[in-house]
Design a protein around this nucleic acid. Structure first.
Length: 268
DNA sequence: ATGGTAGCCTCGCTA
């Protein structure tokens, strides 16, 4: 069966409710990983999404961060928080198993990796530690030898082709060698950057700052990624960046990225 | 030219 998985940093689900519902109605993705919902679980407006046919699981907090999963198929075994640090209470990770009927199942996570700026602060050491934890968790998931997708706002610009002005961004927490090394380490475990599995063109951005006319000048960066296990990469058909959504009414500063899989037959 | 904008629900922080 065909299955589409989208990731979208919405920058506040309350402010973006109409924008997100409108896109879901048009694009009809099967599974959606949302980031920066900026609301506690009890305040999440689940009903508009349920009316559109989605099951909803959230891991939110007041004002900042917050992630969610929407799925047309049932969400099972939902787990909240990235393993590896019981003292970390920032809401940046949710994972669930989506049962795809006779086609098997696919595990999906929505993650919001720390921004890390400025690089000389404890925010950057938190980012690097968070990436180390993510890589350890990914290694644990790989041992299951199942199809899975780690989708989200990674706050990582993987390579210079993913930023409009590499020199200007070289010292940013999204670009620094220590950041990129950890992102490469995730790939070296065996995960595939879904877009790069399908398409190597430079300049395919997923974020344009609200400030300084970044969208009008196409001053973008690519930081929203779907990292997929080998079992999922084998089923990957196409990846689309919904670039037009940046130009709509009340846009997020990020646009959706959608990966399409074909899980025909049993998952290997 | 060290600006600019958006969300949250504050008198500033985060991005």
């Amino acid at each position: 069966m065909a299955l589409s998985v989208a990731t979208w940093n919405v920058n506040g689900i309350r402010a973006r409710l109409d924008t997100v519902a409108d896109w879901l109605g048009r694009a009809a993705p099967d599974i959606v990983a949302l980031q920066e919902i900026k609301i506690a679980d009890e305040g999440f407006p689940a009903e508009p999404f349920e009316r559109l046919g989605y099951n909803v699981a959230t891991h939110g907090q007041k004002s900042f961060n917050g992630v969610a999963l929407l799925s047309r198929l049932p969400l099972e075994d939902v787990s909240r928080g990235l393993p590896g640090d019981d003292g970390d209470h920032q809401a940046r990770y949710i994972e669930a198993v989506v049962s795809a009927g006779a086609g098997g199942s696919v595990r999906v996570a929505s993650l919001y990796l720390p921004n890390g700026n400025p690089p000389d602060s404890d925010k950057y050491s938190y980012k690097l530690a968070w990436m180390d934890r993510l890589n350890r968790h990914a290694a644990d998931l790989l041992a299951l030898e199942e199809a899975f997708v780690l989708a989200g706002d990674y706050n990582v610009i993987p390579a210079d082709g993913d930023v409009h002005d590499p020199a200007a961004w070289a010292g940013d927490a999204l670009c620094l060698p220590e950041t990129r090394a950890r992102f490469r380490a995730l790939a070296n475990l065996g995960l595939r950057d879904a877009l790069r599995a399908c398409d190597w063109r430079a300049g395919q951005y997923t974020f344009w700052d609200y400030q300084a006319g970044a969208w009008q000048k196409n001053n973008g960066i690519r930081i929203d990624h779907l990292m997929v296990s080998p079992q999922a990469a084998d089923r990957l058909n196409a990846v689309t960046i919904a670039r037009a959504e940046r130009g709509g009414e009340q846009p997020s500063d990020h646009v959706p990225v959608v990966a399409e899989f074909d899980f025909q037959g049993a998952s290997r």
